[in-house]
Design a protein around this nucleic acid. Structure first.
Lengths: 201, 201, 201, 201
DNA sequence: TCCTAAGCGAGACGGTACGTCTTGTCTTCCA
DNA sequence: TGGAAGACAAGACGTACCGTCTCGCTTAGGA
């Protein structure tokens, strides 16, 4: 097998994934059939099964790369935006969301278990990773994963509200709201002495 | 048609819903078939279609009542627990979750669009309603629905983390964490003068 | 389940078999698809599988009855026609073939293993059965099954030739030919003393 | 293109045919796939299609030669064995069959249309050809092709019975049976005055 | 008390999607 | 340049559900 063959395969796979994403924009995940995907991709149905075991496999095989790409874009923004005093960096987060509105809405809306959960998990991991570098010496008395979950839930809720309401206000405004809602609590918790609450059980 | 007949119908419908909920605890929503539900309920498959158009209809027809019941339990707790200074009332929220762990995990996990979204919406409405009475005169400069979304996202994230990690700490502890993370931000925003951020656009 | 249902099932099965036979008249057995049969029978493809496992099953389930019916018609004729001196009864055999020309040609042509072999076997059994009653006391020195095989092969060869050449001569004529070709040998063998050929090995 | 290339091609074709014959001994014609043939022949599937259009083509292209070889062996035997008074020559026919038992059984059993019909036709032609030289001047009142069909049917029936019953008696015995069953009829018919039966229609 | 309309179980049916298999074509690469 | 490898389109296979339907049985509640 050579390069040309490889390229053909990649082209077919991309066609299938693109077809799937296109269909996801217009109907529910579960309502999409393999036949539709293959048709949309101008590919025989059997060819689909040559590359993927089923719909989930198609998604799973491509979604990681997609998330990795998004994560690559978000990662550098997170550190500053989470705890930055000004809203300039936070804004970039919402701008990113606005730029890929379709993708994020898709994930929020109907990704169901597969997409939504995966996004939450990825985002939580990303945030946890960032938090760890931030708190470093500080020894937060609260489990990082809990804080990360909170941040993820809070941020996605804000983004979701913004996108679902057709972005009724500027990214700057949303960044400011996020700052005011989230930062005080984080400061209080993350900077707290470890004896602020002594017993977990 | 008389009472006895009615009661028979209700019994059949309950059997179907119970069977569905039982199946939901052990497998994914989409993986459950009408045949399974009917079998589990000791009912003919045709009888299922006599009462509901499909799986979604069965869920939709029963879930509202279920949420209403949950809402009835939560509503009184919310007002106090959200902004209360002490953690006593907040604890009740987590205790409620712990008591119906299966149900909530089910909703969080695999409800997918139908269940999860509905819960979020219900909860946001419930919170918005509570917030309105709290802020009343205060004229919050931020849209109530946005605040409600944030609160819903933040709270469900905390509860989800707690349940999914097998409740590694007490409800008291979680209530305290929630207080410290959420209240400072809410206070800052809800009590803010309307000029803290002048332009939305 | 009641009579009406039974009748519906029988109607469906008959439609399927009729469709199959119709298709067999125009194309090869192996070239016929389940989809075609179902379409021709105005029946859903799934319904086909509700009644039969596959094409072979459809044929096998119906062919016995069909053969039994044919056998019922032929049996009474055989005894007299095989060894009768005159050709009157023998004629009836060829007339039967002419009347169901399509069916017999179908079986001869393309029945392949399933149909052709079965017919041969049935016919050989039928003939063996007749021979046994004829020879009765006579104690033929040759195995009945061998004689039956020979008779089957010879008769079907004649019938096949006749049908495939579009019946270029009368049934009477064919019956006479059969008489003259077959009877002398049968007489010689069946009436022979058991010492005409002493050692089998 | 040179001789070496030719030889390579011939080697590939032989490998394919041998593989096919080997597979025919263990499973039904229709159940054999091109993939299996190619695998068995240690040849790429595409290579198969380089030489033959399909399974039937592979068989057809090789079977003629095979039949020609068999015919070459049988032809000299036929003339004497058919009408010979003694059984010595007739025996050779059955011995030939016994020697290639697998091949003949294969043809009888599952050759289906393609193999069986072809054999019958070839054999009938062979016999007709022999008959013509025998009767020559005699002017048989019966069509040669009809006699040939009868002889073919009768002889193959005997051979088939013999092989399928695992040759329960000697070739000599079978030859004798064939003689006694067939010769009297043939003599009566072939030597008959042309007025033995005056009207065909 | 009967009888009549209902809920219901059983299951045939048409339809659609599934994932697998085979066919025949085509393209790329290797020896 | 012949053959190996294998991607691909096409389409049949047998299975699983779906939602509709018709059929009788049972049973409740008004006559």
């Amino acid at each position: 097998m050579g390069r040309k063959t490889d390229r053909r395969i990649q082209r077919t796979r991309k066609a299938l994934f693109d077809a799937f994403m296109a269909l996801l924009l217009e109907k529910e995940y579960e309502a999409i059939t393999v036949t539709e995907i293959a048709d949309q991709a101008n590919v025989g149905r059997a060819t689909f099964y040559l590359h993927y075991r089923d719909k989930d496999d198609l998604l799973a095989s491509n979604i990681e790369a997609l998330f990795e790409e998004v994560a690559g874009r978000i990662r550098p923004l997170l550190k500053q935006s989470i705890l930055a005093r000004d809203t300039i960096q936070g804004r970039i987060l919402f701008e990113e969301a606005a730029r890929n509105k379709d993708l994020y809405l898709l994930v929020f809306r109907q990704g169901g278990t597969l997409l939504y959960d995966r996004l939450q998990r990825h985002m939580a991991d990303l945030i946890a990773e960032t938090l760890e570098t931030l708190i470093m010496g500080g020894d937060s008395p609260i489990e990082i994963s809990l804080l990360a979950s909170y941040l993820t839930g809070a941020l996605t809720a804000l983004v979701k509200w913004w996108l679902e309401n057709d972005m009724p206000c500027s990214a700057d405004y949303m960044a400011a709201v996020a700052q005011h809602l989230i930062r005080p609590g984080m400061e209080q918790v993350a900077l707290l002495e470890s004896d602020w609450y002594t017993q977990k059980e």
